[in-house]
Design a protein around this nucleic acid. Sequence first.
DNA 1: ACTTGATCATTT
DNA 2: AAATGATCAAGT
Length: 225
Amino acid sequence: MNSINNRPNNITELLERAQQIAGFTLQQVAQLNGLNAPENLRKKKGWIGQLLELHLGASAGSKPIQDFPELGVELKTIPINQQGKPLETTFVCVAPLTGNHGVTWQTSNIANKLQKVLWIPVLGEQEIPVAERIIGSPLLWQPSDEENAQLKQDWEELMDMIALGKVENITARHGKYLQLRPKAANNTIRTKAYGSEGQIIKVLPRGYYLKKAFTHQLLKNHFAI
DNA sequence: ACTTGATCATTT
DNA sequence: AAATGATCAAGT
């Protein structure tokens, strides 16, 4: 009774499917899909996310679209400890470093991705074997006005620096809730960006990440209701 | 202890 | 190279 080749028809179906595996271990879900959990995630960093995509019926692949385009939903797994505190930041999307003329927060790719997110917390402390990690209750989230404003403010600061050719001066310390960090296979990878004179330069690709304080806040808001 | 910067696998 | 899925691990 797994869900291979079986996409949910609506958000209710998707939520039901996610709720059904709350309390399951990763190995249980892996077995439902004919897989086995790896020893560790060192060389399988995206494994949990891909397992949940498979089980819930998301379209696979690396297309730059939402996981459930028909439903307008993005799927994110998030590792938490027993207290519900995120153990890692959350990658959202690659940051375009050129061609951002006229793009506003409202029209940005990142805001689009964060419109509606199905969060699936997973107890993920490193001392727990991957196979034994427990899946938590899913949370279908849409940013509140306040959360949207928080992200917009950080995004505008970062985007200003990118547009002004200062991308190499940006560190993970910029932004209170949204940060820009390297996103590449290794530090020899390069992509186009603007230099300080407006010329094209080659830099390490960057991605937008939600800091733990932000995701912790939204998880708490939900489970406090 | 915690965050920042680096890295791993896979697909297109 | 660029996008997806993220976590690792060095440095502070």
